[in-house]
Amino acid sequence: MGSTQARIAIDAMGGDYAPAEIVAGALRAQAELGVEVLLVGEPQQIQAQMEHHSPSLQLEIVPAEGLIEMHEEPLSALRRKPKASINVAMDLVKQGRADAVVSAGHSGAAMAAALLRLGRLRGIDRPAIGTVLPTIMANKSVLILDVGANVDCRPKFLEQFAVMGSVYSKFVLGISDPQVGLLNIGEESSKGNELALRTYELLDQNPRLSFIGNAEGRDVLTGRFDVVVCDGFVGNVLLKFAEAIGEVLLQILREELPQGWRGRLGSLLLKPNLRRIKQRIDHAEHGGGLLLGVDGVCIISHGSSQAPSIFNAIRLAKEAVDNQVLDRIRSQYQQTEATATDGE
């Protein structure tokens, strides 16, 4: 694309609070992040929300007809509704009119639309959703993948997740040598089921990875690992449990602060600290997950996303575009193919 400014297509109709919160988050993103936002959906509803939230700032609207409802089966719904907002948003990326897409709608539909319209990157068998979680180390996070795209996995899928996660961790999160772990029930290489045992061998033998062994559940948030791989079933359970823990901790903090004037004074004094705590543990601060492995940048946000989460999802999309994540993943697999050809 001619401009260096990232253009982000937003599925404005997807999510529990669409289009109001989606539009609010998009308006803030265009104002603060230096991105160009395309709002995809029903024009009258979107326009009404823009006038409500920010009459002075207008975003480009790309018309769409309807959306994929949460109860619908993704593939059949996508085919039955070719002009649904998620389909139109993916088409914008496919046509080069946008650099990335963000959706808080039906996650299964978003994944299916990405595969159908954008296709997989060469060398990747299955895409994975990667999400960033905080660790006990300040300013240190861990990338978990897959957290929901693939309920059942083969060892080579997990190996590909590790390679893609390492690229993302290095070039977006700024980790010079990402340390990779395999989620398992024990640290020993002999532990785990057949999938874990075979995956361990692949990761250990891959020269593109800094694989440091198995990661038990208690190790995930220690900061020891930069990337942790697992199948989407386990990863989704892990993600939602971590999100729940964050919400519990925030609620405990609110309840344990003293009541009355002492509480108000204490809250005032602790306000900067409380804000930093919220930024570290509140899942809304992270925006969602990047669908790695498809031929386009796609961020899948929580269905309950409100404006702050949408803003952060757009920030994630911008970072992936600015740091050329797709090109860097392609480069990894082109190098592999070239090495294999030279060895023949």
Rank of each mutant, 00 (worst) to 15 (best):
L292D: 04
L239C: 04
H302A: 05
A149T: 08
H106Y: 06
A320E: 03
H71Q: 12
S304E: 04
A48V: 06
H53V: 01
V88F: 01
V227R: 03
D219A: 11
A112H: 03
E194T: 12
V167D: 00
D11F: 14
S54M: 11
E32R: 15
C153T: 08
D16T: 14
A149Q: 09
D152K: 15
K83P: 00
V172A: 06
N87L: 00
I329H: 11
L78G: 08
Q205A: 15
Q47M: 09
L253A: 05
L182Y: 11
A26Y: 06
A48R: 12
E285S: 13
E344T: 14
F225M: 07
F233I: 02
A98R: 04
S176Y: 15
R126H: 03
Q49F: 11
I310N: 05
G130C: 08
T131C: 11
S54N: 13
Q334I: 10
V37I: 15
N87P: 05
G288C: 13
G105D: 06
E337A: 11
K94M: 06
L57N: 04
L202I: 04
S189R: 15
L197I: 08
V142T: 00
R97M: 01
Q324Y: 08
E243D: 09
Y17M: 07
Q335W: 06
T339E: 12
L38A: 10
S56R: 02
P74W: 14
A48E: 02
E51K: 10
L274E: 04
P207K: 00
A48W: 12
V167P: 00
Q95N: 11
G148L: 07
H283Q: 02
L145W: 12
M1Q: 08
Q324H: 15
I136E: 07
A114W: 12
A340R: 15
I310L: 14
F225N: 02
S76K: 15
L253C: 04
A215Q: 07
V234N: 12
V88C: 02
N87F: 06
F161W: 10
K81R: 12
D226T: 03
Q95R: 15
L203T: 04
H286P: 01
S3H: 11
G66T: 03
V88L: 01
Q279M: 13
H302P: 02
E73S: 10
L116F: 11
Q332G: 08
S76F: 14
L116Y: 07
L316K: 14
R154V: 04
G130K: 09
T199I: 01
M70H: 10
